[in-house]
Design a protein around this nucleic acid. Structure first.
Length: 139
DNA sequence: GCCAACGTTGGC
DNA sequence: GCCAACGTTGGC
């Protein structure tokens, strides 16, 4: 199983809204970036991801699971853009802030730190472990 | 709200 | 295929 990180501005689509969709999940649509799309195409059913609030929030707030693999993005007719569906699994006991991530030397290679503009990004098993620890949840 | 960094577009 | 111009993202 692989690990990922999904970024969303809480003003646009928040963790609370994601939780409200329940087990059915929600299409992670609207991505118009090739790298982010390629990451979604590489996802398998059951892959897990962190849910990160960008712009306002700046913290990892929960854990999601891929519940549908890559398919055409329903918000466009452009065949270039695919997306997956994700559903909320559980919140972190303590949100892990960007500040805390930057302060932890073990996380200095995270894509979140190195390329803050990429909205769907891979997370290594080691990074997953550390952030779960910081967030007070079992991986 | 600002602006730096980045990705995308389009003229050449 | 290059690169300037433009639009968007996201931390501050």
């Amino acid at each position: 199983m692989a690990y990922w990180l999904f970024k969303s501005e809480p003003d646009v689509w928040s963790w609370e809204q994601q939780v409200a969709r329940g087990a059915a999940g929600e299409e992670w649509n609207g991505v118009r970036n090739y790298m982010a799309r390629n990451n979604m195409r590489a996802m398998a059913l059951g892959d897990q991801g962190f849910y990160y609030h960008s712009r306002s929030g700046l913290e990892v707030v929960g854990i999601v699971e891929v519940c549908a693999t890559s398919h055409p993005d329903s918000t466009t007719d452009d065949p270039r853009w695919d997306c997956v569906d994700i559903r909320a699994l559980r919140p972190l006991a303590r949100p892990v802030t960007l500040e805390a991530i930057k302060a932890d030397g073990r996380l200095s290679e995270m894509v979140l730190v190195k390329n803050s503009r990429l909205s769907v990004q891979p997370v290594t098993p080691a990074e997953w472990q550390i952030i779960c620890e910081l967030g007070g949840t079992t991986p």
